[in-house]
Design a protein around this nucleic acid. Structure first.
Lengths: 199, 199
DNA sequence: GTAGAATGCGAGCGAGTGCTCGTGTTTCAA
DNA sequence: TTGAAACACGAGCACTCGCTCGCATTCTAC
């Protein structure tokens, strides 16, 4: 059922514009309250045009999530073995820094990531973001503490992800001059929690 | 414009039933996706009856939030001065224990509390819950560290509240046998973060 | 050039929302 | 006993949502 469509340059541009518009609307009203008509209008385009490129609301959110994870990956750098032997506070800088930077640069993404309620029937894009961040954290933990039982490591990774999810939206929507202090608090939280485990 | 209405016993019962129904629906689908018709149906009542008692959807959420905060207050106990000199891990037990217990007993409330995104234009009931929890934490911090500047204390209280908000939904929706381990993680997080500050 | 694909429009659909209102039933003070 | 107030119903109003579809325009391969 996959329809492969040859895109023109104009189409690619429109898709990027629609993603920008979706990010802006998500940032303002959240994922659920965002309407596809509002996204289309924001992009200066009719609703029909939006559906020319994305099958449904979830589709455009998924595209946005993909872009987000892409930025995270590249901002994050390779998962080199040296991470396993870095001092913990440096490791936290290396993990939290890019995370915060990408979220601040893309305020729409917190709407896809910072949803800690009702984990059962969450929209697929949110799930994908959670899974990717979880995997990232889990991999780092595994490199640092190969002896840790899988269940414990998974639990630690899940909790760490939730800590990000709880604090990042606050950081993103804070005033610029308050933000550094909040980022410092985030690092304190991570250091205090992870210290005894992977310190 | 406040209409004072003499309630009959039957009416009071209905209001409680409607709150129970709202809690159940909120727990299942979240606040935004919950419909007033679904809440009424869940209570075995017509939509019109719901609006006999609550002016709008936000009204019933507010009533639910009030009940929640009431339970929290009573489960929490008085804010005695002795809290200021308790060992930190005991203090954390005293704060986190009731919080977790009330949330587990009322799975609908996490929908009103665990919303960390878009703090600007949140619904009023959610704001009320956040403000109450924040005030509670802030008071305890003030008792423990009267010397801490207001801004620092407020920031710490806000971060602590967000930590609850990020982890509680996960705890509430976890399997019963996994829950104790997650509660232990919550306490580790709080201990690790608050230890250097109010230890 | 021209055919055919890609892009674009926007009124409007079906479904579902929060909420209303006319009407009937139950309760309870007088 | 009675009548006004409280309670209850449920069809349906006004509106918004995600999404569609018929048609016009623009691009590109040949």
């Amino acid at each position: 059922m996959e329809k492969v469509v040859r895109r023109q340059a104009r189409g690619e541009r429109r898709m990027a514009e629609l993603q920008d518009a979706a990010a802006a609307v998500f940032a303002e009203v959240g994922y659920e309250a965002a309407t596809t008509n509002a996204i289309a209008a924001r992009a200066g385009v009719s609703p029909g045009t939006l559906y020319q490129f994305y099958g449904n609301k979830e589709g455009i959110a998924q595209a946005l999530a993909d872009r987000y994870l892409e930025q995270l990956r590249s901002a994050h750098g390779a998962l080199t073995p040296e991470l396993a032997h870095l001092p913990l506070d440096e490791l936290i800088d290396r993990m939290a820094g890019p995370m915060v930077a990408v979220n601040v640069a893309n305020p729409g993404f917190k709407a896809l990531f910072g949803r800690s309620d009702m984990p059962e029937q969450l929209a697929a894009p949110t799930r994908a973001v959670h899974a990717a961040v979880f995997g990232r954290i889990d991999a780092v933990l595994a490199a640092r503490r190969p002896d840790l039982p899988d269940a414990d490591r998974a639990r630690t990774a899940q909790v760490t992800m939730r800590l990000f999810g709880g604090l990042i939206p606050m950081i993103v929507s804070a005033d610029e001059d308050e933000r550094p202090a909040l980022v410092a608090e985030l690092k304190k939280v991570l250091l205090g929690y992870l210290g005894p485990i992977v310190g």
